[in-house]
Design a protein around this nucleic acid. Structure first.
Lengths: 415, 415
DNA sequence: GTTACTTTGGTTAGCGTCTAAACTAAGTGC
DNA sequence: GCACTTAGTTTAGACGCTAACCAAAGTAAC
């Protein structure tokens, strides 16, 4: 952290995501958007509060807060939830986030299945569908899978609208490298250069509906940031434990995208000549399962869930081989995560998916290795925790990525 | 990159560096600061231009540009440099950055020496002092070194003021982990928990002078971003090749700081059990020199410069051993940088310091390994280039970090 | 019950900043 | 000298924030 000896209040600063080189000029709309975001974020972090307390703790003027909240109530993003009797003085009217008007949809693509999930602005889950690609896994060809994805997206959007919510956006979470809506390369799916975004936009085109495709680890990291029970603005890294080994990195409150969006490819980590085992080989869930349960049908391994469950049962029963294999995986994972900790210094590293299910046996070994390989473990090392979000974290994050835009002051256009 | 199907112009967004959890509210001052920054950045990137062309290409109103430039001229940050005779119509008055009023100072601490450098707002170098810690390297104890640093900083500030510049700030670049002005741990210097920032602030306290301490790799990355001849806003990673092996990561136009500022510790990279060789062992400059020039006095190796020069001469003369050793270092470095590329996906990786001097022999091997270990080399791999900034990049970056604040609209307070 | 006090939240006047449109300035071309 | 073109300033207006005032709605004391 760079220390600044100078005085002066911390000044808000304008920053642009889309255009990197030339920053966009600012005008009143930006001030308004920022302050709307301040109010929304305050309510999300601190829970329901009165206008007066919002003004007091954000530093905004009372009049400004009244004006902002009036807009937000008009947009159905806030609700007055009654009076709070203070000990003395006029009772305050309590304002709370109102999630009932808007929702977003996230889809998550795996080799064998497809998950659709919708949440509203308050974070309530509206819909969770899980569909197997029956007989036709995504790996046999992108064409059918893309058709299935667009169909499911379409149906989810219709259903959410039937529930009285306006759908703000839809994002598809995919493992691998995604660029401008195109899946450049996804080893777990066996895809390359699949223009999923284009297909989706073509069949879902509706005014005000934002369609996107993005890497599943990054989206899961967003989900963890918003629904993982962490303090707001935490620097965290999420590690996927299914469909490849990837990481989503949140730094400075935002997702690290890199030059082309190809961040977090930790499964490719290797130090040694070409052909050396990668971190995916050493610490991946699928190799672990293959080593530990050699009699499982390799064909059945498109869905790792049952095998992981079986492994957990074995470990819980004290099976020495299983426990040793898990510890070994934990060691290698810890060594890999030490690289992440040394490079981007997150506060916590969240183990997702199957790693979370097996955390009990993996984390101790991983923590020890992590501490061993970081320069100042007490200071620079990262805390290692298991995700509580389950297997649909990426789908949740995909939906959340749209709702986050409201939280940053980009209110939906009134129609 | 997340694709957004929705319409609407890219909206500027407010973001706060200092307080992470609760964003600061915005007001007109922020709009003004942002737009001042837009004008300054436009001139820095596109060179001198007229008010009309600034308005046309930034999207700001002509009247606004007039008002902004009038402020900037009043602050002596801009200058009218004459008329430009167009073919037709009224000639335009050309505006250019005026660097002559403000300057900042950067210091760079190495085991054996101390560098002070001052640049003005236009980027002209005002001062470059290099002092050896004679007989008393920094590694023998922080106390004397800190005294020498504060003394040099003091003298540099006096000298720059004599040159008619106002000194905006001073930063000391240090290898290792730096937190809130304190050097937590610096293996190259042998320091731990040295409150350098406190000592500096104590002896330099002056109104409006910003004092900071930060990691040298991060600062060098800032220098590279501003003076390396790259397009503005490039995602780049700078790799130090002296005083340890560290990286400075610029993503999204800003330095990646992580939870506590301990980013870029690539020298600690290792994949394997404890005791496995680290990237510093395999690809560090000092181990390379020790391996290749075994008859050099180890005591003389606090300054690697002469040994590196000797190595370059050997390689240039075709010495097989030297060339092989350099290629080997390049291989390992490439493998290490592949981890960086896979994790944060920079557009370019800049090799600094001694790596730049030896780039001719190191880069080809490193590039090959880098390509081999990235998922989609053509897309996700990073370009590898040698820095042109020389050995004082960190000092330059230390100074530049203060001048950058002007570019982001934080004009110096008028006194 | 009346009065004083406290706190909430809305209203009003004023200020700073951006924008659009009119206007002045300063050149070229015929 | 007049039309045309481009540069930069002036002016009127819109917008959003702020400070100060005011009304609303309660408690506490008498």
């Amino acid at each position: 952290m760079i220390q600044r000896g100078g005085t002066g209040r911390p000044r808000a600063e304008l920053d642009v995501k889309t255009t990197k080189a030339e920053p966009q000029p600012a005008d009143f709309a930006d001030v308004r958007a920022t302050n709307l975001a301040v109010v929304l974020r305050h309510l999300r972090v601190n829970g329901p509060s009165s206008r007066a307390s919002i003004a007091a703790s954000t530093g905004l003027n009372k009049a400004t807060v009244s004006s902002l909240t009036s807009d937000l109530i008009g947009q159905r993003l806030l609700r007055e939830t009654g009076l709070s009797g203070n000990r003395i003085g006029r009772p305050s009217t309590v304002l709370a986030l109102d999630g009932s008007a808007y929702a977003a949809i996230g889809l998550q693509v795996a080799a064998d299945s497809l998950t659709a999930l919708a949440v509203d602005f308050a974070g309530d889950r509206l819909l969770l569908w899980h569909r197997a690609f029956d007989g036709e896994p995504a790996t046999t060809g992108a064409g059918r899978a893309v058709t299935a994805i667009t169909a499911l997206a379409q149906r989810a959007a219709v259903r959410v609208r039937q529930q009285g919510r306006r759908v703000l956006g839809l994002t598809v979470a995919v493992p691998g490298l995604v660029e401008d809506g195109t899946v450049r390369l996804s080893p777990p799916l066996g895809w390359s250069d699949v223009d999923l975004g284009g297909r989706l936009a073509g069949s879902l085109r509706q005014p005000g509906l934002d369609v996107a495709v993005a890497n599943h680890a990054g989206l899961a990291a967003l989900a963890e940031l918003r629904h993982g029970g962490h303090p707001a603005g935490l620097d965290l890294t999420y590690v996927t434990g299914a469909a490849g080994l990837e990481a989503g990195i949140v730094a400075d409150g935002r997702l690290l995208l890199g030059a082309r969006g190809f961040t977090g490819q930790i499964g490719r980590f290797a130090l040694g000549p070409a052909g050396s085992p990668t971190l995916q080989d050493l610490a991946g869930i699928e190799p672990l399962v293959r080593r530990t349960l050699p009699d499982v049908d390799p064909e059945a391994l498109t869905d790792l869930g049952p095998a992981v469950e079986q492994l957990a049962v074995l470990a819980r029963s004290g099976d020495a081989g299983a426990v040793a294999a898990l510890r070994d995986t934990g060691c290698h994972l810890g060594q890999g995560l030490a690289l992440v900790a040394n490079l981007v210094n997150p506060e916590v590293i969240v183990l997702g998916d199957h790693y979370a299910s097996l955390a009990e046996w993996i984390v101790p070994a991983a923590e020890a290795e992590l501490a061993r390989h970081t320069l100042a473990p007490a200071a620079g090392g990262a805390r290692l925790v298991a995700s509580a979000l389950g297997r649909h974290a990426a789908a949740l994050g995909a939906a959340v990525s749209h709702l986050d835009r409201i939280d940053t002051g980009h209110l939906p256009e009134t129609r």
